[in-house]
Nucleic acid binder design. Structure first.
Lengths: 110, 110
DNA sequence: ACCATCGTCAACCATTTGGTTGAATATGGC
DNA sequence: GCCATATTCAACCAAATGGTTGACGATGGT
């Protein structure tokens, strides 16, 4: 039972996957094009993209024979909300964070 | 060669470690007290705390025979800066993020 | 119809991860 | 000095991770 947050942070822990996200931030890309700059097999990149997709950090849509990858900020938003409670940078979204923290501490509460 | 960012995200990927951080957010704690609510050996918690320490998410200071654990937001700040570039929540610290992204894309540039 | 291209699947491998247990090492109290 | 408490160490284990290779299914171009 791995939560969305587990998957998001685990996905972000790998430098290859962060680099992929950085590339996709500039533009949507096909799998082959994502793989091109890396010194790694296409299959390996395909696995990384699957991990990013399951973590909801990207979405993939097949059009014709090419599969387009694009950033999906939904899980990142969740993770960022979780983090911002610790940082004391800017007190943004603190209400959402507190609800989230409360749920993490007491998962059985309503 | 694992970067600080790798370690921070990897540390955050584990729900036990996130729960520990949430506990430490309320107050500094000794290792034994951190371990108490978990259904897990003390040695396991000790390992988790080592991981959090190496990731610079907490600091540990031994006073007498008890080792006190406290939140250290430094690595979280770095990770949060990295993330905020993707989320488009609030445009905070975007300059820092762009420098960071640039370095991740082109590590050899000055 | 054929062939090249796009991407995944399956099997395998080495390493890391998250946990266990039991012994070992401080340190503090009496 | 002795005992309890606090924490880590070491050896081990199962499962997950990140990579490889080669075969395979789909799709598009000619």
């Amino acid at each position: 039972m791995s939560t969305q947050l587990d998957m998001a942070f685990a996905a972000l822990a790998d430098p290859t996957r962060r680099a992929i996200l950085a590339m996709l931030l500039e533009d949507d890309m096909a799998v082959t094009d994502v793989a091109e700059p890396f010194d790694m097999s296409l299959a390996a990149i395909s696995k990384h993209l699957t991990i990013l997709t399951k973590a909801k950090l990207i979405t993939q849509e097949k059009r014709g024979r090419v599969k387009w990858c694009k950033i999906d900020p939904s899980a990142l938003r969740e993770a960022s909300v979780w983090m911002q409670g610790f940082g004391q940078f800017e007190p943004v979204n603190l209400d959402a964070f507190e609800r989230f923290l409360e749920q993490e501490l007491h998962p059985d509460a309503p």
